[in-house]
Every structure is written in C-alpha cells, then in structure tokens.
C-alpha cells in the first residue's frame, strides 16, 4: 500500500514537542552544558571538555555505587518475584477474602516513599524501634546505623515490604484470567500441583511477570528516597547508590560539572535498559 505523505501533520504534534522541549529537552541540555564545563560560581565557566567523564569513568566511587545498585536490584528481584508469585498463588479467588487481600496488598503501594523510609528508619532503631529493639532483645546484635550488613538488611526488607505487593497484584491478575476448565482438565490429566504451576499458571503469568520484573528492576535501579531517609547512604558509603551519590556530588559538594557528567551517564544507562526491555517485550509479543 502507498503511504500518504502529508507534512502538515507535523503541526498537530507541535504542542507536544514544545511541551516536551520545556519539560525535558531544555533541562537536559543545561545538564549537558554543565557536564563539559567547570564553574566556581558567579556564572563564570571554563571549558572542561571530556574531563569530567574521564574522571567519572575511572573513579572507584562511581563503579562501587554502580555495583551496589546492581547487587541491590538483583537481591530484591530474587526475593520479590518468587515471594510475589507465592502470595498471589495463595490469595483467595472468590468470596469476601478477595477485596480484603487486594486492599491489604495495595496499602504499601499507597504510602509516599519518604514516609516508607521514615517508618522503617524508626521501626529498625535499636533503642525505640519495635523491630530493632526486639531483634536485639532476642540476642541478635542489630544496628543498621553502624553495621553495613544490617543497613543492607533493613533496606532490602523495606523494599520487599514496599514493593512485593506490585508483583503480587500483577501475578494475581494473570492468575484469575485462567478459566476453570484448565484446572479441571489438569485434574483429569492427573497433573501434580507442581505440574499445574509449571504448565498452566506460569505460562499464563509469563507476560505480567515480565512487566513486573521490568518495573521492579528499573525502580530499584533508580532508588533514592527510602535509603536516603533510612541510612543516608551510610554507614560509610555502604548504602550509597548511584542516585544518592549523584545528589551528594551535586548538592552536597556543589560539584556541578562532575554531577552533570554523572547524570548523563546515569541517564544513558536507564535509556539503554529501557530499550533492552522494550525490545525484549515487543519480541515476546511478536512470538505469541
């Protein structure tokens, strides 16, 4: 079929382009501007070229923060996905339990992120926090302010508490769409509980699970608020993720050039990942 070319149509997308220019492109270009210059205030700029990028990519601090991010994402995915599936499988399919469970599941998702951080910051304290106090009372030495391992534990537990619901809700949506006949046929075929999961439930959840993994990975890779509130990146740098590091550099040390370079690299990583996920998902759809 011949395509009709009509360049007048571009005028119709003009409003959107203007909006996006002001909200995204122009701010992004200022960041690019900062990233290639050095400034000591008073609007005096010196050309720095690729210096900040070279410095960043050869700095240990950056790669350590990156490694922490990846490890964090990996751990929370490894916990939240199986746990989410498990909870979704055990949620009631009908009756009064359904709305109760759905509301309970949705609650953590409705809480603002800094409030989640504050809740766990207090909850985990070993002097007045309910959790911290009793864990210590059990004879386990738990102090997330001083011990890096404990700090990781509290951040991971917090993220699992906050976001497993999302995986649960997505999986549950996939599960309830399976017609009863599938379970009945499986019974007749003598399928075990595991076989039902492996050959009926998992294939039906595949698509929503993919979305869940994508969302959780992206979110956890960009995590900022909650660890910032709970540990502030410490003790030491043990919970300093890329985003926290970025804010420290930009607003703490006021190193605008290096911070801008870091933002751009961070942005490119997210862009790359988004592209990878988009490709995976569209390929997956095409295969269906």
């Amino acid at each position: 079929m011949d395509k009709t070319w009509n360049n007048k149509a571009w005028f119709l997308v003009l409003p959107v382009l203007v909006l996006v220019a002001f909200s995204a492109v122009i701010p992004l270009m200022t960041v690019v501007n900062y990233s290639v210059q050095d400034t000591f205030g008073n609007n005096v700029f010196f050309w720095a070229g690729t210096e900040w990028f070279e410095e960043l990519l050869s700095s240990r601090r950056f790669w350590e923060a990156m490694a922490r991010n990846l490890i964090f994402s990996f751990i929370i995915l490894a916990i939240e996905v199986p746990l989410g599936i498990f909870i979704a499988l055990n949620m009631p399919k009908k009756g009064w339990g359904v709305p109760v469970c759905l509301v309970l599941m949705a609650l953590p998702l409705l809480i603002p992120w800094n409030v989640v951080g504050t809740i766990w910051q207090v909850f985990g304290r070993n002097d007045i926090g309910l959790l911290g106090y009793y864990v210590n009372a059990l004879g386990i030495d738990f102090n997330y302010v001083q011990d890096p391992f404990d700090a990781w534990v509290i951040i991971i537990v917090m993220d699992v508490w906050h976001w497993t619901s999302l995986v649960v809700l997505l999986c549950y949506a996939g599960l309830v769409s399976i017609p009863d006949a599938f379970y009945q046929a499986a019974k007749i075929d003598g399928a075990s509980r595991w076989a039902v999961f492996r050959y009926i439930q998992l294939p039906k959840m595949q698509r929503v699970l993919l979305i869940a993994v994508l969302l959780r990975f992206m979110d956890s890779f960009m995590i900022y608020t909650e660890p910032f509130v709970v540990t502030g990146g410490g003790p030491g740098n043990s919970t300093t993720f890329l985003s926290i590091d970025l804010v420290k550099t930009a607003l703490g040390q006021f190193d605008l050039g290096p911070a801008a370079a870091m933002s751009l690299v961070y942005f490119l990583i997210i862009l790359l990942l988004s592209w990878v996920f988009y490709t995976v998902m569209t390929n997956y759809d095409a295969e269906r």
């Binding site: 017609p179 006949a181 009945q184 075990s192 076989a195």
Partner: peptide, 27 residues
C-alpha cells in the same frame, strides 16, 4: 475418565506430542 471442555484446553508451552504425553507421564 476423560473430559473435553467447551473451550479447548491445551498446554501452551508444550508441543503437540508433549501435550498428549502429559497425562501418561503424570501417571
């Protein structure tokens, strides 16, 4: 017993062969 339902029930991820083998392998 065997039962055939209104809407075809197949195991999507399996081949035709494995679909038919499924009830036997389960047993």
């Amino acid at each position: 017993i065997a039962q055939v339902f209104q809407f075809p029930v197949i195991y999507d991820t399996m081949t035709v062969y494995d679909n038919l083998a499924f009830p036997l392998r389960n047993r």
